[in-house]
């Protein structure tokens, strides 16, 4: 789980953070304006590719994607 969190955190920093802001596992990503609703689609695609899962659209909500911790909980939920 810790490895997954670090992988997701690194991806978020690399793809969506423009400055040197620190991103923790609890940093609000969607409500904090770091990842917008359009970009969420690419984040979802990354998770699906990386972890070979399929996240239903109705589960990919702004609330479920709002932190690294929440995202990893979602990935675990859909990992067989």
């Amino acid at each position: 789980m810790e490895d997954m969190k670090e992988t997701v955190r690194e991806y978020v920093v690399r793809e969506y953070v423009e400055d040197d802001s620190e991103i923790t596992f609890d940093t609000p990503l969607i409500s904090g304006g770091i990842v917008d609703s359009f970009s969420m689609v690419s984040l979802k695609r990354f998770l699906e590719n990386k972890y070979k899962i399929s996240i239903p659209d109705d589960k990919a909500t702004p609330e479920a994607f709002d932190s690294v911790n929440k995202i990893c909980a979602l990935v675990v939920e859909f990992t067989k």
Binding site: P28, L29, I30, S31, G32, G33, I34, V35, D36, S37, P62, E63, D66
Partner: peptide, 9 residues
């Protein structure tokens, strides 16, 4: 409100 969208917020 300068924050991303969430219904609760």
């Amino acid at each position: 409100l300068d924050a991303g969208f969430s219904a609760d917020n």
